[in-house]
Amino acid sequence: MNWVLVIVGGMVGAPLRYLTDRAVQSRHDTVFPWGTFAVNVVGCLILGLLTGAAVAGAASSHLQLLLGTGLCGALTTYSTFSYETLRLTEDGARLYAAANVIASVVVGLGAAFAGVSVAEALWA
């Protein structure tokens, strides 16, 4: 049963990542990978909320598998982040590459901490 939850979450997360990436990136006329940045930050926020809910006893292990492993596992993408950062560096856009790394780590961690804080406020 657990693997079905992961598969279902992944079936939602993967197309959601693709569609969100395309929608966000089409609205920006820049080489900065805004679409990947957006899905990764949203994934961090969801995982933070889920973690906070789990710690408070408000999220079951099944929900963690469905949303955490399945949905967020397919929604977020470290490999694309790495590839796009490498591509920016190779194309001479080193400032964008550095901004991508720094912003992704800082904003991603901030979103995760915010998610945990919101969950604690809701379920503590």
Rank of each mutant, 00 (worst) to 15 (best):
A58M: 14
A58R: 15
A59K: 00
A59S: 00
A59I: 01
A59F: 02
A59W: 02
S60Y: 11
S60Q: 08
S60N: 08
S61K: 00
S61F: 04
S61M: 08
S61L: 08
H62G: 08
Q64T: 14
Q64P: 08
Q64M: 14
L66Q: 06
L66H: 10
L67E: 04
L67W: 04
L67K: 05
G68I: 02
G68P: 01
G68W: 03
G68Y: 04
G68N: 02
T69R: 11
T69M: 03
G70V: 07
G70W: 13
G70Y: 13
G70P: 06
G70S: 13
L71T: 05
L71H: 01
L71A: 06
L71R: 05
A74Q: 06
A74Y: 08
A74I: 05
A74G: 15
L75Q: 10
L75Y: 10
T76M: 11
T76A: 04
T76L: 07
T77Y: 01
T77Q: 00
T77E: 01
Y78C: 01
Y78W: 15
Y78M: 09
S79K: 04
T80S: 11
T80G: 06
F81Q: 03
F81S: 02
S82C: 06
S82I: 01
S82V: 03
Y83L: 15
Y83H: 15
E84R: 12
E84A: 08
E84K: 14
T85E: 10
T85A: 11
T85S: 13
L86I: 14
L86E: 13
L86V: 14
R87S: 13
L88W: 09
L88E: 07
L88D: 12
L88H: 08
L88I: 09
T89V: 11
T89P: 00
E90C: 10
E90M: 13
D91V: 11
D91L: 13
D91K: 15
G92E: 10
A93P: 01
A93K: 12
A93M: 08
R94F: 05
L95C: 03
